[in-house]
Amino acid sequence: MTDEPTPSEQKAATTSLGDLLGEVTKDLSVLMRQEIALAKAELKESATRAGTGAGMVGTAGYAVLMAVFFLSVALWWALGELVGLGWSAVIVAAVWLVIAVVLFVAGRAQIKKVKGAPRTIESLGKIPEALKRNEENR
């Protein structure tokens, strides 16, 4: 091994502490700006893809709505041959009402199970305590 100082060691030996801190601060600032720019680019790409996907899912939902509507009309018409158009409309409407009530009750039960972010709230609650300990140790 040689005892010659590395270029970094030479620079450290010949540069003032203020200049070294200035360079570190500048490098850190550049790094943070680059990271923020990267995050913005990634988020923009993700948002674009999410928007496209949401549009496609929305259109698919509309297509399903139209299919359900026309199937309901077909069921109404078919039942109309058996019991008359008026009663068949009441039967189809009643079937949809039952489906709506079942989905509402199930959805409401799911909403009541939502607890938010309990672990995040717990960990955020510990931050002031940790800061107090750091202040006491100074």
Rank of each mutant, 00 (worst) to 15 (best):
V95M: 11
T120N: 04
F104T: 10
A94G: 07
T25I: 07
A50C: 01
L124K: 03
V105H: 06
V24D: 04
G80Y: 07
T25H: 14
S8P: 03
S123L: 14
V114C: 00
K126F: 02
N134M: 13
E135M: 12
L21P: 02
V68D: 04
W76F: 10
A60T: 09
I111T: 14
T2I: 13
Q10H: 08
Q34E: 06
T2A: 07
E9F: 00
T15W: 03
S29R: 11
G51S: 11
W87K: 05
G107T: 09
L21K: 08
P128K: 13
P5C: 01
D27G: 09
L131Q: 07
K40H: 07
R119M: 08
A106T: 09
S88E: 01
L131V: 10
G80T: 10
N137L: 14
E81I: 03
A117G: 03
T59L: 05
V98C: 01
I127W: 03
K126L: 10
V30G: 03
P118T: 03
F70S: 05
A67C: 02
L71W: 07
V101G: 03
Q10R: 15
L71P: 00
S123P: 01
A47Y: 13
R119Q: 12
T59P: 01
G116L: 04
Y62R: 09
R33C: 01
T59V: 05
G116V: 08
A89R: 04
F104D: 04
E45P: 05
K11A: 12
L124W: 11
G51C: 02
A47S: 10
V105L: 15
W77D: 07
F69W: 08
G125Y: 02
I91C: 03
L28Y: 10
E9L: 02
G125T: 01
R33E: 15
L103I: 07
D3G: 13
F69G: 01
V105I: 14
N134I: 09
A74S: 12
A106K: 14
V24R: 13
Y62Q: 08
L82C: 04
E4H: 08
R138K: 05
G18M: 09
Q34F: 02
L65F: 11
L75A: 12
M32A: 15
G18L: 13
A100P: 04
S8C: 00
I127F: 12
L85F: 14
L65E: 05
L131P: 00
A89F: 11
E4W: 06
R133A: 15
V68P: 00
K115H: 10
L21H: 04
W96P: 02
M32Y: 12
I91G: 02
R49I: 01
L65H: 08
V95K: 06
S29D: 13
A89K: 10
T48Y: 05
K126M: 12
L75T: 14
L71E: 02
T48K: 15
P118Q: 07
D27Y: 11
E136W: 03
E42V: 14
I91L: 15
S123K: 12
V30T: 10
V83W: 05
L82Q: 12
G55T: 00
L82P: 00
G22S: 13
A37P: 05
K115D: 09
A130K: 15
A60I: 15
L38T: 06
E81H: 03
G80W: 05
R133Y: 00
S88G: 03
I111E: 14
G22N: 13
L28F: 07
V24G: 00
M56W: 09
K112Q: 10
T2M: 06
Y62C: 06
V98A: 08
